[in-house]
């Protein structure tokens, strides 16, 4: 589809340098899918959909030029949006543990909200510090068991969200773990799930250009994050030789993570 112009109807500061932009969206989105967001004159980047519904949303953390430009937009400003793209989570029956690191909470939150029965979904939220913990209230509306960690101990438990998830898996029985965060978090989460014999799905990230399964810039091994992912099963991720080690740059050259 043509990049569709949408007007920002709401802008919410979720945390330090983390902003949600809400806009009307007709296309049906599944939890875990993403959109390509065009900031005219600046860039077009992939963003997980963080709010599903008539007033869709993305949640952006300032890390570079494009995300700074996105964050500086105000209500009434116009964005280009195409999509949704990608496979999204596979939400099976049974007990689900959702694990989000930083803005990785964006697709995690739509998964938690996608499960109507709040007694079968738990949420572990991790961030570097208190200012970067997002969506805690939202998570509490979707789940009876929400826990938080920060690396520096400024909020919730001190430690990593993977250590927390590992503890929760040892106490409660989960049928699946859904994870999204920095690759190092995903890597340790995969290991923790394996140690606890719990299947997992991970939402991964790579430099992305076309977003539509054509150009191949976002491949991990032969799998396109945009079209075959962004959600991959633990088994798929374990077979990836590049996961946790390499990514591709703009030219398609393999570089260390």
């Amino acid at each position: 589809m043509f990049s569709k112009a949408v007007k920002i109807e709401q802008r919410v500061e979720e945390g330090k340098g983390i902003t949600t932009l809400r806009f009307p969206m007709d296309a049906k989105v599944r939890p875990g899918q993403f959109v390509m967001v065009w900031i005219p004159g600046v860039d077009e980047i992939p963003m997980s959909v963080s709010f599903i519904g008539a007033l869709a949303g993305i949640t952006v953390k300032e890390v570079g030029e494009a995300t700074r430009a996105l964050s500086s937009l105000k209500e009434g400003d116009v964005l280009g949006v195409r999509g949704p793209y990608g496979n999204g989570w596979h939400l099976p029956p049974g007990r689900v543990l959702c694990v989000g690191g930083g803005v990785g909470m964006a697709p995690i939150m739509t998964a938690a909200e996608g499960i109507a029965d709040r007694t079968r979904v738990d949420v572990a939220i991790g961030a570097r510090n208190a200012g970067e913990i997002i969506f805690e209230e939202r998570a509490r509306r979707a789940s009876d068991d929400v826990r938080t960690t920060t690396d520096d101990g400024s909020y919730g438990l001190k430690g990593t969200v993977v250590a927390l998830a590992d503890q929760m898996m040892k106490v409660k029985r989960y049928d699946v773990v859904l994870g999204c965060g920095p690759e190092i978090m995903n890597r340790y989460l995969l290991k923790a799930c394996k140690d606890n014999s719990v299947p997992c799905q991970l939402s991964l990230e790579r430099l992305m250009k076309c977003g539509a399964g054509l150009c191949g810039s976002c491949v991990i091994d032969g799998l396109r994050v945009c079209a075959d992912g962004p959600v991959f099963t633990g088994e798929q991720v374990e077979r990836m030789t590049e996961f946790g080690r390499w990514k591709r740059d703009d030219a398609g050259l393999r570089v260390s993570l």
Partner: peptide, 14 residues
Amino acid sequence: PRKGYPNPTLVELD
């Protein structure tokens, strides 16, 4: 090695 152009690099039509 060549980086190519910045995005948008693709427009999707019907």
